[in-house]
């Protein structure tokens, strides 16, 4: 056994022990006692996630034995991990490991990328991370994978073509990276869901912010994990160089994607109400952005 594989197994076993402990701890509590938002900082991506998911009741709360899981990171751009244009591959790997430990049958990872998908999957480091963790990297670059669904509660967006994996999987874990965005100001959890849609180009020409909020009414992810380890502070969503990146070593976890977006906005340093789709989503009642009234668990490692 290679040393690295050994260490990985060790880490996995350790966290398995941790999460089973967490299961025991929370076994008697109802989910109502769970925090609405967990914010972790001052750690590496793996450690942040281990503590964050533990505080949310462990992965066993979201993934049951034999279920299929789809993890949707941001793999939009042909850029290396240090540029923070995509979700950190180390976080993606850790999420998959937790899912498999919780008994997931399959863990799929995909994105409908902006740059050429092959380059983006590869250079983001995510393809390799997924393979090493035992997940399956799935394609998202061909219209044949997408099916039209109705957005019943949409105001502007009435239908969208959604990736079949989202329709078929039991669990959806949304794993965006927090970064600045030229068009939408900020991209976090709701905006990341544009990557499970085929015909998103039309959103740009028909009120982008309303469309993003509308689509969030369709299927709320079971879990949102916001990667704020490296944060692209400007020139997003693509970034120009590593000079645009701040090492914030943080992570946010929540089942509510409006909550997690509002918290991410504050972490980024902008008022959530100045990001139109967050404001609209709050008004539409898709989720809660009144952080002051929510139960937040703050963890500093």
């Amino acid at each position: 056994m290679h040393r690295r594989t050994f260490l990985q197994t060790l880490g996995v076993t350790a966290s398995l022990a941790l999460s089973s402990r967490a299961d025991r701890l929370y076994a008697t509590e109802s989910t109502a006692a769970m925090p609405d938002l967990v914010a972790v900082k001052n750690g590496e991506p793996e450690a942040l996630f281990d503590r964050g998911i533990e505080a949310l009741g462990g992965m066993g709360r979201f993934v049951k034995k034999g279920q299929t899981v789809v993890v949707k990171p941001n793999i939009g751009w042909n850029a290396p991990p240090e540029r923070a244009a995509n979700t950190n591959p180390r976080l993606v790997r850790r999420i998959i490991e937790h899912c498999l430990q919780a008994g997931a049958k399959e863990v799929y990872v995909f994105d409908h990328t902006c740059d050429a998908w092959r380059d983006s999957y590869r250079n983001s480091g995510i393809e390799q991370a997924v393979k090493e963790a035992g997940g399956k990297i799935a394609p998202g670059h061909s219209e044949s994978y997408f099916q039209t669904v109705a957005i019943a509660k949409g105001r502007r967006l009435r239908e969208a073509k959604e990736h079949e994996l989202i329709l078929q999987s039991d669990v959806l874990i949304n794993a965006p990276v927090l970064k600045s965005h030229g068009g939408a100001k900020l991209t976090v959890a709701m905006k990341n869901l544009m990557g499970i849609v085929w015909d998103r180009g039309e959103w740009h020409s028909s009120n982008l912010h309303q469309c993003i909020a509308d689509f969030a009414t369709y299927r709320r992810p079971d879990l949102n994990v916001v990667d704020a380890y490296n944060v692209l502070q400007r020139h997003g969503p693509r970034g120009v160089s590593t000079a645009d990146v701040a090492n914030m070593r943080s992570q946010l976890l929540s089942t509510d994607l409006v909550t997690v977006d509002a918290a991410a906005a504050k972490l980024f340093g902008v008022d959530p109400d100045t990001v139109d789709y967050i404001r609209i989503a709050g008004e539409m009642g898709i989720g809660r952005k009144d952080l002051e009234n929510l139960q937040i668990q703050r963890i500093t490692l």
């Binding site: 030229g182 068009g183 120009v240």
Partner: peptide, 24 residues
């Protein structure tokens, strides 16, 4: 430009520009 004609946010060009030669 859609921002001009439709009076709505867009920025697709800025999103894709690798050098930020195009900026908002």
């Amino acid at each position: 430009c859609i921002v001009y004609t439709d009076h709505t946010a867009c920025g697709a060009c800025d999103e894709y520009c690798p050098t930020k030669a195009v900026h908002m």
